[in-house]
């Protein structure tokens, strides 16, 4: 699985090596390293964000090894937004508050509306929107769609879902 990990390094030479050595030891595949050298924490440490691919059973051991090496592990989480789908909404999409519809998804923290196409052919005619929703995992995506379904019922919008999604 793909995991994101926020760690903090002391600002002294050789720290990055101590951070990477446990990953190599457990044969984790490092996808990205973001080294925020300019953003010191109040503890004077440097925040670093890692994304790595590893077996789920190795995550606890990698974290322990990092801490053994004197590295603070602030957060471990599943990689964000691995799932993505298109949804069509038809109805008075704009007049019923498109921003509010988007906010309902965005405020979950596990899903976001990342793209929106909108067509309003005329006053009193039905508008059509195609939105793309990204979510952390499959379950989160389903939860986001459940929220969207509730909003659509309330706003009398027709929601058209992909065929492979449990509608």
């Amino acid at each position: 699985m793909r995991v994101s990990m926020d760690i903090e390094l002391k600002d002294v030479p050789g720290q990055m090596l101590l951070a990477l050595q446990p990953l190599s030891e457990f044969k984790a595949n490092l996808i990205t390293v973001l080294h925020h050298h300019q953003k010191r924490t109040p503890r004077k440490t440097v925040p670093v964000q890692l994304v790595l691919e590893t077996k789920p059973e190795n995550i606890v051991a990698i974290k322990a090894k990092l801490e053994e090496n004197g590295i603070r592990v602030v957060r471990v989480g599943e990689q964000r937004f691995r799932e993505s789908i298109n949804v069509v909404l038809i109805g008075h999409v704009v007049h019923t508050g498109i921003q509010d519809t988007i906010d309902e998804i965005d405020k979950t923290g596990f899903a976001e509306v990342v793209d929106l196409s909108l067509c309003m052919p005329g006053i009193n005619l039905l508008s059509s929107a195609l939105i793309r929703i990204d979510a952390v995992g499959k379950e989160d995506l389903q939860k986001a769609l459940d929220i969207l379904k509730e909003v659509s019922v309330k706003k009398d919008l027709l929601m058209v879902l992909p065929i492979d999604i449990h509608a």
Partner: peptide, 15 residues
């Protein structure tokens, strides 16, 4: 309720 616009937007994305 299906609109030609919805069909077209979906088609542009391969559906």
């Amino acid at each position: 309720k299906i609109t030609p616009e919805a069909l077209e937007m979906a088609y542009e994305r391969g559906h």
